[in-house]
Design a protein around this nucleic acid. Structure first.
Ligand code: FES
Ligand code: FES
Lengths: 132, 132
DNA sequence: TTATATACGACAAAAATTATCGTATATAAT
DNA sequence: ATTATATACGATAATTTTTGTCGTATATAA
């Protein structure tokens, strides 16, 4: 319960790996996948997603790869999680109102309070803190 | 991502329902299931689990049911979650060391830091805050 | 004796997550 | 130009987790 996904885990591993390298050098999905034992295709898609989000920059062709493009100090963990996985909360009814029994739910308000606490917590942490 | 489970949701709904009633009265699983549109059998099992954990007290037979048995002010949300769902953390490798690539993982330490933050947060909230 | 409630292991269905496939495009090196 | 290697990405498959059900046993009030 309250787990992050593999996708996010792989993304964090990749970011940290890239950051530990020279700013200029590129890193391919293949290299990271091999080093950490991550499924290459899945990691590639995650890197592509981060590329679309502007977190990393992609370079095509042989000798291509990825490098960090954003200032990781300026991206909160909350924003990062939401870029990759969508809205962040303990329960979905925090966002959409599709909960079957939303009308006679008796814990909606307290749950939202906790949700806010959690979102605040992740808002105050930056990607840099993980990848540094 | 970072969701709680239905089981915990149902448990919270049940607790809050019971607390809003007279201290003496019992509440059956059937009653709660009907009122909130929850699968009865599943709710029953959850109540049984809470009974084993000493959170509620069960009374058999017709006119039987459940009532709150513990002091909800003294049960942290972290403990409650762990009683129902086991160890609480963003990643399993926080607890068991079965992670395939635990040896060359580069985010283990920072992830554990976040885990601790999250566990601290839920340690400081009590069940009472939700069900009051 | 009957009706109704809890107790609980085993099983099934559904949903979410995780991983793979196939194909297209970009580009450096030969 | 051709080849090799990298990213791009929708579609699909496999796996795992979550969620829900079934069947049966036991307790107890009426
Ligand atoms: S469970 Fe959805 S609103 Fe409470
Ligand atoms: S992913 Fe398991 S130890 Fe890092």
């Amino acid at each position: 319960m309250l787990n992050i996904t593999r996708k996010v885990e792989y993304a964090l591993i990749a970011l940290r790996h890239m950051q530990s390298k020279n700013d200029i050098g590129l890193t391919s999905a293949k290299e990271i996948a091999a080093q950490y034992g991550i499924p290459k295709q899945l990691l590639a898609k995650t890197l592509q997603q981060m590329s679309r989000e502007g977190i990393v920059k992609a370079v095509h062709g042989p000798t291509g790869g990825y490098k960090i493009a954003a200032n990781l100090k300026k991206i909160s963990l909350k924003d990062f999680f939401e870029k990759l996985e969508g809205p962040l909360g303990m329960m979905d009814c925090y966002f959409d109102s599709e909960c079957v029994q939303i009308s006679n739910c008796n814990i909606r308000v307290p749950i939202q309070r906790i949700n806010n606490n959690m979102r605040d917590m992740f808002s105050q942490m930056t990607l840099q803190e993980i990848t540094q």
